[in-house]
Design a protein around this nucleic acid. Structure first.
Length: 271
DNA sequence: CGCCAGGTGCGAA
DNA sequence: TTCGCACCTGGC
C-alpha cells in the first residue's frame, strides 16, 4: 500500500468525467482503475491518496504521473482567471480536477471509438478488446484484463474489431493500427504539427486528435470542442461555431485553453 | 418505433 | 471552402 500525502485531488471528478473509460467505483467510494501495466485501487482519505496496486514497481512515480499530481494547478488557475474572471464559478467547482496522463495507444483507440458514440458503448468496446486480446491480471479477488499492446492489435482483422462492437469505426481502427504512425515521434512535435500528423489517419478528426494530445501528451494548448463545450460558449459568450470558439479560447486562455475547456466540459456535465 | 451519443469522411454546390 | 448527410449500435 502506498499513501501520497496532502494532495489537492478531486478523485471522483477526475476519474469519472470521461477522460478514461475503464474504471469502476467501489462500494467504499474508492475507484479501481485499469492502467496500462497494472490495476490500481485509489481512495481519498482527507487529503491523502491511498493506493493499492497489482504491481509495486515505481508505484509512486507511476501514480503521480498518471494523475498529474506534480503540476501546480493553483498557479495555472490564477492565470486563467486573470484573463477571464467570469470563469470563477467554473474553476471553483473544478478545484482538485486534473488532466490525467493516459497511455498513448489506448487513448488513440479510445477516442477513435468515441466518435458519434456513447460513453457506456465506448467502455464496452474497450473492455471487449481487452478481454479478448489483453493480459489477464488478478487483483483483490477479481479478474481484470489490461489493454492489449500494439503487437496483439496488429494481428486483428477489420471484422475482429467489428466483433468488439465498434460499428463503422472498425475500419478506422484497423487502418490506425496498421499505419506506420509513430506515437513516440509526437513527443517532439509542435502541437499544430502533431494535430496534422494524427489527422492523416482516417477516423481521426480535429476533436479526436485534440483529445489524444491533451490526455496522452499533456498538450494544454488544444481545444477538444464537443457538444457540451459548444453549448456553453453559445450560451455564455454567444459564439456558435468551432472556429470562433477556438479563436476565442486561443486569444483568451492561450497555453491553457485545453484545461479551460475540460473545466467547462466537467462543469457543464455536472450541472 | 425514432432519436441520440464527447464526430468524421464523403460528395455536392 | 463550406455544407449536409449517413453511419454501427444499444439505451431510452
Amino acid at each position: 500500500m502506498l499513501v501520497i500525502k496532502d494532495v489537492n485531488l478531486d478523485l471522483e471528478n477526475t476519474i469519472t468525467c470521461g477522460q478514461i473509460f475503464r474504471f469502476k467505483k467501489e462500494d467504499d467510494n474508492s475507484f479501481t482503475v485499469i492502467m496500462s501495466d497494472r490495476v490500481v485501487n485509489l481512495k481519498m482519505n482527507n487529503n491523502n491518496l491511498i493506493v493499492l496496486s497489482s504491481s509495486e514497481e515505481d508505484l509512486e512515480d507511476v501514480i503521480k504521473s498518471y494523475l498529474d499530481l506534480d503540476r501546480n494547478y493553483d498557479k495555472i488557475n490564477d492565470k486563467i482567471l486573470e484573463n477571464d474572471s467570469s470563469l470563477k464559478d467554473v474553476i471553483d467547482k473544478c478545484n482538485g480536477f486534473k488532466i490525467m496522463h493516459t497511455p498513448k495507444l489506448e487513448t488513440c483507440i479510445s477516442y477513435i471509438i468515441s466518435q458519434n458514440n456513447g460513453v457506456p458503448q465506448i467502455r464496452n468496446s474497450l473492455n471487449l478488446l481487452s478481454e479478448k486480446y489483453g493480459k489477464r491480471v488478478e487483483f483483490m479477488n477479481n479478474v481484470y484484463y489490461l489493454f492489449p499492446n500494439i503487437n496483439e492489435l496488429k494481428k486483428l482483422s477489420i471484422s475482429d474489431f467489428h466483433e468488439c462492437k465498434t460499428g463503422f469505426r472498425d475500419k478506422y481502427l484497423y487502418n490506425f493500427i496498421n499505419s506506420n504512425i509513430k506515437l513516440d515521434k509526437i513527443d517532439d512535435m509542435a502541437t499544430d504539427d502533431a494535430l496534422k500528423y494524427l489527422m492523416n489517419i482516417k477516423g481521426i478528426g480535429l476533436k479526436v486528435a485534440s483529445c489524444i494530445l491533451l490526455f496522452a501528451y499533456q498538450r494544454f494548448d488544444v481545444f477538444p470542442i464537443d457538444t457540451w463545450v459548444k453549448k456553453y460558449f453559445s450560451e455564455n459568450y454567444n459564439l456558435d461555431d468551432i472556429k470562433k470558439i477556438s479563436f476565442f479560447a486561443k486569444e483568451k486562455y492561450g497555453a491553457y485553453s485545453g484545461l479551460v475547456i475540460q473545466y467547462i466540459f466537467n462543469y457543464s456535465r455536472n450541472k
